[in-house]
Amino acid sequence: MNAWIGWALAAAAIAAGYVGWGWQGVVLGITVTVFWLLLQFSRALRAMQQAAKRPRASVASAVALHAKLEPGLSMLQVMKLTGSIGEKVGDDPETFAWRDAGGDAVHVAFTGGRVGRWQLLRATAGPDAGTHPAA
């Protein structure tokens, strides 16, 4: 959800509380807003704890991650998809990379804290890849 929408809803809850129940409604509106903020904080912490349990910048399948990404996802949502914290590989735009066991990687560029673009980088084949020894 957009932060502006969240804060507008919080202000609307406080205003509705005041109109309906006076100062007690304002207290209720503030309480609901604080509870909502605590839920968001708890969600972020839970995602960080899960990501901290896995190796950094690793993902089960880079191809699957590439297929699941879409523009506008937040870093928290990408961390939930990958299950790990990405490795920062660039600053402008802020770019993070995740790799799988096969060497494939996904580079995700974040613009304004949201996924702007991403790129799948396949592992290069070794010099003897695809050749079989003569029998």
Rank of each mutant, 00 (worst) to 15 (best):
M1Q: 07
N2C: 03
N2L: 05
N2G: 05
I5E: 01
W7N: 07
L9D: 02
A10R: 00
A11Q: 01
A15W: 02
A15F: 01
A16G: 15
A16N: 06
A16W: 01
G17P: 13
G17M: 00
Y18S: 04
Y18M: 04
G20C: 02
G20F: 00
W21R: 08
W21P: 11
G22N: 05
W23D: 14
W23V: 15
Q24N: 09
G25A: 00
V27T: 08
V27K: 09
L28S: 07
G29H: 04
I30V: 15
I30T: 08
V32A: 14
T33A: 15
W36F: 15
L37T: 04
L39N: 10
Q40I: 07
F41M: 09
F41N: 07
F41L: 12
A44L: 08
L45F: 11
L45D: 06
R46D: 11
A47K: 09
Q50D: 15
Q50K: 15
A51Q: 01
A52V: 02
R56V: 10
A57E: 06
A57T: 10
A57C: 10
V59Q: 09
S61N: 12
A62Q: 09
A62P: 11
A62C: 08
A62H: 11
A64M: 11
H66S: 12
K68C: 01
L69A: 08
L69M: 07
P71R: 11
P71D: 01
G72K: 05
G72M: 05
G72D: 03
L73D: 03
L73R: 05
S74C: 05
L76S: 13
Q77M: 06
Q77W: 00
K80T: 10
T82V: 13
G83H: 07
S84Q: 02
I85K: 11
I85Q: 13
I85F: 12
G86K: 00
E87F: 05
E87V: 01
G90T: 03
D91W: 03
D92Q: 12
D92Y: 05
P93V: 05
F96E: 09
A97D: 06
A97I: 04
W98V: 02
R99I: 02
D100M: 07
D100K: 11
D100C: 08
D100Y: 09
G102D: 12
G103Y: 03
D104T: 06
A105H: 03
A109K: 14
A109F: 01
A109Y: 01
G112S: 06
G112R: 04
G113S: 01
G116T: 04
G116L: 03
R117D: 10
W118V: 04
Q119P: 00
Q119E: 14
Q119A: 05
L120P: 09
L121V: 15
L121M: 13
L121Y: 13
L121S: 12
R122D: 03
A123Y: 02
T124K: 14
A125E: 09
G126S: 14
P127I: 05
P127M: 04
P127Y: 02
D128A: 14
G130K: 00
T131C: 09
T131Y: 15
T131F: 15
H132I: 15
P133S: 07
A135G: 12
